[in-house]
């Protein structure tokens, strides 16, 4: 049993199902990557795992506990962190305040965690008093990831953390993600840059129309000629 697992998830936003019997899992210290075409239901699968979508069938477990019926807030309390694909920072609040809001549920002293986030993303320390809305795309993603790290989650879920950033910044972000995984945190992320993401992934899921098409190690998926041809551009 994986540390975090969404098993046989079926459900959608309204009457029609978007996810069909979809299964996604990740273990501590591991990076699992979900790739697939636009509209495949990648973000929907993430929302389902985080409890932002009602499942008709299937279940979600965290550390062996069934959390299918927990609200997203309760999942945050149980050690899950989520960085949504869009609107993932408080634009009118300073970088530091964004991080403070990330730690909202904590009653203990979180300055150590904030220092660690600043170590991970030094530029944020420099810009700590600036409103997050005035930062570049890459810096904003760093704020978004930093905010989610403030609860010291055991699982970090990232929906396209490198969307709209330059290749250099993308490499930096991937390095950061590897560092975070090395702390023993389970990372589940959706990526548009499938090649680079599968490169650092322990596990890869190719989703098509809300269903698992291929599931394997990152390496094996990269080597699979069919996957290469259809999803990685040859």
């Amino acid at each position: 049993m994986s540390f975090l697992a969404g098993t046989n998830m079926t459900g959608g936003y309204g009457a029609a199902d978007i996810l069909h019997d979809c299964t996604i899992a990740v273990d501590k210290g591991e990076i699992a990557v979900i790739v697939g075409p636009n509209g495949a239901g990648k973000s929907t699968a993430m929302k389902a795992v985080f409890g932002m979508l009602k499942l008709r069938q299937g279940s979600v477990t965290l550390d062996g506990r069934d959390i299918t019926n927990l609200t997203p807030q309760d999942r945050v309390q149980s050690g899950m962190g989520f960085v949504p694909q869009t609107n993932n920072v408080f634009v009118n609040m300073s970088v530091e305040e964004n991080l403070e809001m990330g730690a909202y549920i904590r009653d203990d002293d979180f300055s150590g965690t904030m220092d660690r986030v600043f170590d991970l993303f030094p530029i944020l320390k420099e810009k700590r008093s600036q409103p997050a809305g005035q930062l570049s795309g890459g810096q904003r993603q760093q704020v978004a990831v930093g905010r989610a790290l403030m609860t010291q989650p055991k699982v970090l879920m990232l929906d396209e953390p490198t969307a709209g950033v330059s290749p250099i910044v993308m490499d930096e972000l991937f390095d950061n993600i590897l560092e975070i995984a090395a702390l023993g945190i389970a990372i589940l992320m959706v990526e548009q840059n499938a090649r680079q993401a599968l490169n650092i992934a322990d596990k890869g899921y190719v989703l098509v129309q809300g269903a698992n098409r291929y599931t394997d190690t990152g390496e094996a998926l990269m080597a699979n000629p069919e996957v290469r041809k259809t999803f990685l551009g040859g």
Binding site: V76, P84, N87, F90, N92, M93, Y104, I105
Partner: peptide
């Protein structure tokens, strides 16, 4: 803390919920 939570909620309701703000 409460005032900041108010501003956060005003800024981005969904993210405020994800941060555990009531």
């Amino acid at each position: 803390r409460t005032g900041k939570a108010m501003r956060a909620y005003s800024d981005n309701e969904d993210l405020a919920l994800l941060s555990g703000i009531n």
